[in-house]
């Protein structure tokens, strides 16, 4: 047996789960799909006296549409997110990012909440949440319900604004209006591996074909998922069909401070890959936005 011994708890409800977390404090660890936590326990990179299994809490699963946003329950599996038609319609970036996560056997158990809480800088859902300005819902026995903007959520490598007694219960993804396009592009050495570098993007156009809203997220290029705010600002107000995607890619790489370097690639290499991924994602997203307008205009 690989992991260190722990006591196992399987609360029957959300209230029971938060009560347990309040009681056990930082000696406890939440177990959702286990696709990141169990490897860490097995490699003994981490150990906890108590493991609180929330994987059977059906109240944490499901997708609901609300005014202006789509809410995905934390316990919704990555497979379920990827197959959900409401997600595909309202938050296409989430749907397109899903097949890039690991392999189908991983996605069958891995959850959206687990992925966001794990906060891997190369994870797809964390960067989608950050790129779309999602809001993270957390619940604790002591503090009740609170909502954390994604911009404040990812605080460092594998660290988040969640308190040890808090459970992530759902993520609200804003729904963009018509005439918007989305794309995610990444490069991994083998299909299913965490990417060397990647980018997710959203583009919304105004009536004059100009970029009204630009969102560019970066993965694998720092200790957290990142936003390329300089490149976003440079794109807003420009005519979408005149923008140079390669130039935006280069711009998105300026000012990066802690680009990882490891066996997968040096920091310089990651920056080159990152620039190319931003360019591809931008081109695809803005083409989609431009094409949507044409399609709408073509209707009799």
């Amino acid at each position: 047996m690989k992991p260190a011994p722990f006591e196992y708890h399987r609360p029957g409800s959300l209230d029971e789960a938060t009560a347990l977390l309040a009681e056990l404090g930082d000696e406890a660890k939440v177990l959702a799909g286990g696709q990141s936590l169990v490897p860490m326990l097995s490699l003994r990179l981490a150990y906890f006296d108590h493991v609180v299994d929330i994987s059977r809490l059906t109240e944490l699963r499901g997708v609901t549409a609300a005014d202006g946003y789509l809410r995905v329950g934390a316990g919704t599996t990555e497979t379920a997110v990827g197959a959900d038609l409401d997600v595909a319609r309202a938050v296409p970036l989430l749907t397109r990012a899903t097949p890039l996560i690991g392999h189908f056997q991983i996605r069958n158990r891995g959850t959206l909440g687990g992925s966001v809480a794990h906060a891997d800088p190369a994870g797809e859902y964390p960067v989608v949440a950050l790129t779309l300005d999602a809001e993270i819902e957390a619940v604790s026995a002591a503090g009740g319900h609170r909502v954390i903007p994604a911009a404040d959520f990812f605080t460092g490598l594998w660290s988040t604004a969640l308190e040890p007694d808090e459970l992530l219960v759902g993520v609200r993804f804003p729904v963009w209006g018509a005439r918007s396009g989305f794309a995610v592009e990444e490069f991994a050495r083998r299909s299913g591996d965490f990417a060397v570098a990647g980018a997710g993007g959203g583009v919304a156009l105004d009536a004059d074909e100009r970029v009204a809203r630009a969102a560019i997220g970066l993965l694998g290029l720092g200790s957290t998922p990142l936003r390329a705010s300089g490149a976003e600002a440079a794109a807003v107000g420009q005519r979408a069909d005149e923008l140079d995607a390669a130039e935006l890619g280069r711009l998105a790489m300026s000012g990066l401070e802690d680009v990882p370097a490891d066996l997968q690639g040096s920091a310089d290499y990651r920056i080159r890959v990152g620039a190319a991924m931003v360019a591809r994602a931008w081109a695809a997203a803005s083409n989609e936005a431009i094409g949507q307008r044409a399609a709408v205009g073509a209707r009799p």
């Binding site: 196992y8 399987r10 169990v38 097995s42 189908f104 056997q105 158990r109």
Partner: peptide, 13 residues
């Protein structure tokens, strides 16, 4: 019926 990694699941689960 769902394909999963059995090394990433505890028997108690």
């Amino acid at each position: 019926g769902v394909a999963v990694r059995s090394c990433l699941m505890f028997a108690v689960q």
